[in-house]
Amino acid sequence: MPLYEIETNAHIMIGWAENEEQARSTAHEHYPDDDIVRINRRPRDLWVISKGLLGFPQNEVLCNTARDCLSKAQGDKEDAIRLYMQETGVDQQAAQRAIETNMSLGW
């Protein structure tokens, strides 16, 4: 079954459908108030998002460091950011990105 990307005025959905009409119907079923802007059949059966584009640290050690800082700070984001800055020497913006990324992953 093909994978479709369905963009509405408020959402982007990715899902399997037999054809474009079924993809359109599924979008209207779940978000009846949305207007469909675009529907594309994906060329492969995978949806891929670059981790770099999302701000994931490229070095796995940094991920582990961020998770350790979150644990030490007992989930307090600001404290974890300060700890991360101290341990890695990065600026506040890079530390915030690393901590928030790992928080979204459920550290």
Rank of each mutant, 00 (worst) to 15 (best):
A98S: 06
A80L: 09
S71L: 14
M13P: 00
R42M: 15
M13Q: 12
D45S: 14
H11M: 05
A27W: 05
W47F: 15
L70F: 00
A80F: 02
Q93Y: 14
Q86A: 14
R67D: 04
D76M: 03
P2K: 06
C63A: 05
L53H: 09
E78C: 00
R97A: 10
D34Y: 12
Y84H: 11
V90D: 09
V37K: 08
T26I: 11
N40C: 13
N102I: 03
I12D: 11
N19R: 04
H28N: 09
E60N: 10
L62E: 14
D45M: 15
G52L: 09
S50A: 08
T8Y: 00
D45V: 09
E87S: 09
D76A: 10
L53V: 07
Q96I: 06
I12M: 11
I81C: 02
R44A: 15
E18L: 12
K72P: 03
V37W: 00
F56W: 10
Q74F: 04
E18F: 11
Q93R: 15
A27N: 04
T65W: 01
E7K: 12
P2W: 09
P43E: 13
W16T: 15
Q22V: 14
I36N: 03
H30A: 14
R97L: 10
I14A: 12
E21R: 09
I49F: 04
I14P: 01
L53W: 10
R44S: 14
E100A: 03
L53K: 08
E87M: 11
G52K: 07
W47M: 09
Y4A: 01
A66P: 08
E7C: 08
E5D: 12
G15V: 08
A95L: 08
F56Y: 11
E7P: 04
W107Y: 14
N19E: 08
T88P: 05
P43D: 11
G106V: 05
Y4I: 00
A10F: 09
L54Y: 02
D68N: 10
R97M: 13
L3W: 10
I39Y: 00
D34H: 04
C63Q: 02
E20C: 01
C69K: 01
L54K: 06
R42Q: 14
L46T: 14
Y84S: 01
A23K: 04
K72T: 13
R41L: 14
R42S: 11
W107R: 01
N19H: 13
Q96N: 06
E78K: 01
R38I: 07
D68G: 05
E60G: 06
K72L: 13
E18R: 13
K72C: 07
M1A: 09
I39G: 02
D76V: 07
E100W: 01
E60Q: 15
N102D: 12
L62S: 07
N19F: 06
I36Y: 06
L3P: 03
C63I: 12
E29H: 12
A66K: 02
G15Y: 12
R44G: 10
G75R: 02
A94Q: 08
H28M: 07
K51Y: 05
T101W: 06
M13C: 06
R41G: 04
E87F: 11
G75T: 04
R42E: 12
E100M: 08
S104A: 11
G15L: 15
M103G: 02
Y4V: 00
L70H: 00
T26L: 12
T65N: 12
G55Y: 01
S71H: 12
E29F: 13
H11R: 14
D91K: 08
I36H: 08
P57A: 09
P32F: 00
S104M: 15
I14F: 15
T26G: 07
M85S: 05
